[in-house]
């Protein structure tokens, strides 16, 4: 056996061989593992032995039709709708905020100031109750058309289309709009961070090639900004899943938490209903995290090694006979 200071040489080669060193020992890792294992065992034992958890009932509550309706309409459709409005609106606001037009810049910052400053539950409550109280309907026509028509003594009031707000405000659509408008204010800052993270040389190169401002933004800057925008947007989406429970302020009752709670109060299976709703939220968020992984991989193309590529490279290195590789 060679001493520690010996440089082990592969037979017949003048290169040093592969190092076989003992790793640093980590006794505290083992201690931590033991402690955690005990805690987890205690938890599982509680799940199994304490019948008051009542998982079978929780499972039943999870698959009740109204709960599923609430999950699909309120939570899933609500999240998707609000995030679409939020992301599109946010990118638009960010581009406005960074534009050379001072009016657009100011509008974007006032918007962000307003919607970021209001709690979502207050905003939704105000949309749900305030708008039908303040306005009976939305008339689409010439601005100030009614006043003009009256002043000129015309029979028309320049209205082309009428939307009843009493109906509108109680629908899911109003809730989605409210959450989306609020989300856009947050997304604007995320998108702005993404856009300014892209090197200025990228826009210059695109412009030097004769690309216009719009194409430069869409084809060159935004795809690179997405790399920075996606992770916090994933965060926002997951927060939105949970914020759809605020839709009750509109009020929208086809919503997961509300439906489960009704069942819980009616059947007095309160704890089981909480377990059911927690399980659904966790499932939805897990699916979203998988989606985020693929999105990040797509927008990260061309930037450094992906995990898969790194693994492949490592396997190739390992496959090469010792002392042969030049890396």
């Amino acid at each position: 056996m060679s001493t520690k200071t010996d440089v082990v040489r592969a037979a017949g080669q003048d290169r040093p061989g592969v190092i076989h060193a003992r790793p640093v020992s980590h006794p505290w890792r083992w201690v931590a593992l033991a402690v955690i294992a005990v805690l987890v065992a205690m938890m599982i034992s509680s799940f199994v032995t304490n019948e008051r958890w009542n998982f079978p009932v929780a499972l039943q509550i999870m698959i009740q039709q109204p709960v599923l309706d609430g999950l699909v309409k309120g939570t899933i459709v609500g999240t998707i709708g609000a995030m679409v409005i939020g992301v599109v609106g946010g990118i638009l606001l960010a581009v406005m905020r960074l534009s050379s037009n001072p009016v657009l810049r100011r509008v974007a910052s006032v918007y962000t100031w307003f919607f970021r400053g209001i709690p979502r539950i207050v905003l939704l409550g105000m949309i749900g109750i305030g708008i039908p109280f303040l306005y009976d309907g939305l008339d689409f026509g010439v601005p100030f058309g009614q006043q003009f028509g009256h002043a000129l003594g015309l029979s028309t009031d320049f209205t082309f289309f009428h939307l009843s707000l009493t109906q509108f405000s109680s629908t899911l659509l109003a809730g989605i709009l409210g959450l989306g408008l609020s989300e856009a204010a947050y997304m604007a800052e995320i998108a702005r961070a993404g856009i300014i993270s892209v090197d200025k040389g990228q826009a210059e190169a695109a412009q030097a090639l004769g690309m216009g401002n719009g194409k430069t933004m869409r084809r060159i800057v935004l795809p690179q900004a997405m790399r920075v925008i996606v992770p916090p947007t994933g965060n926002e989406t997951i927060a939105m899943v949970k914020d759809t429970s605020l839709l009750i302020a509109i009020p929208v009752i086809t919503e997961l938490y509300y439906q489960v709670r009704i069942i819980g109060t009616r059947t007095l299976e309160i704890m089981a209903s909480y377990v059911a709703v927690v399980a659904w939220y966790l499932i939805v968020c897990s699916v979203l995290m998988v989606g985020q992984f693929y999105l990040e991989r797509y927008f990260g193309r061309g930037f450094g090694e992906t995990k898969r590529a790194a693994k492949k490279a490592q396997q190739e290195r390992a496959a090469r006979p010792a002392g042969m590789g030049g890396a």
């Binding site: 040389g201 030097a208 060159i220 690179q224 061309g302 930037f303």
Partner: peptide, 18 residues
């Protein structure tokens, strides 16, 4: 600008494109 090509000190290739 279309008529004029430019090469930059720091290349400025689009990193998300081959």
């Amino acid at each position: 600008r279309r008529e004029i090509g430019m090469v930059f000190q720091r290349f400025n290739l689009f990193p998300h494109k081959t």
